[in-house]
Amino acid sequence: MLKAFELIRPSNLAEALAAVASGATPLAGGTDLLVRMKKGMLAPKKIVDLSGLKELSEIKEDEENIILGSLVTHGDVVDSELTNNYLPLLVQGCRTVGSPQIRNTGTLGGNIVNASPAADSVPPLVALGAKVVLSSVNGEREMKLQEFLAGPGKTLKRPDELLTSIVVKKMKPEERCLYRKLGQRKSLAISIASVAVKFGFDPETKKCSNPGVAFGAVGPVVRRAVELERLLEQKKLDQQAIKEIASKAREFCDPISDIRASAEYRREMCCSLLYEALYELTC
């Protein structure tokens, strides 16, 4: 049951940052925060409701990047022309989040700051090399999403900061991508393991370029599998090669056992999901 709290409803970002600086807990979609509060795991005294901040709810582009406001919902990402044209990998990830209701409520910023290793928007963003923008009353800073994620439930966000936007390089039209999620069922599922893969591919030579690979739910944080990316670039991606590369995936994860799956199964799933993704993208 919810405990009583003070609710601040800022009318602009500056007011929101001031509230955060005064110790208020930010509320975006509430799909994680409210659940924890109802379960009694969290009892913030002050909450700042960001939902009215239009400036954080937009998807914009510049020459090179797509800039997503932190209040953009998973549903917005799935529906937006910009993300469908330039970030299809992220669209695939967001499409697997929860249910339609959760996708229409939960935000990209919330999914990142919540720092669950199983967050479905995060492996695509990490594979795409996304950056996050953090704002506070003292100014703004930017860092790579991969560095921002510090552990399960932990980020480098200071208590006085808000994650305000996510900046992602546009994918090239010829790049191929796949987000493959394994859950306990086909929707409304928390990932047991997942993989985001993207690369440019020449079907003639079977060579790939500019690869990005990141696994979800198989380690304390989502990280790019740089060694696998290197192998992908080096090899001609025929059947034998994708089996070999996929088999190595188990070395790049550090999973735990929980109610959903054993660590050993998760480890094997890194290989399986990567193999399936490579098969689908190259065969």
């Binding site: 306990q184 069922r185 086909k186 929707s187 409304l188 599922a189 928390i190 109610i259």
Partner: peptide, 16 residues
């Protein structure tokens, strides 16, 4: 009980 709620007690959805 190892699972106590509907995020860990899994039933099929319409998608399944």
């Amino acid at each position: 009980y190892m699972n106590k709620d509907l995020s860990t007690y899994i039933i099929p959805t319409a998608q399944d």
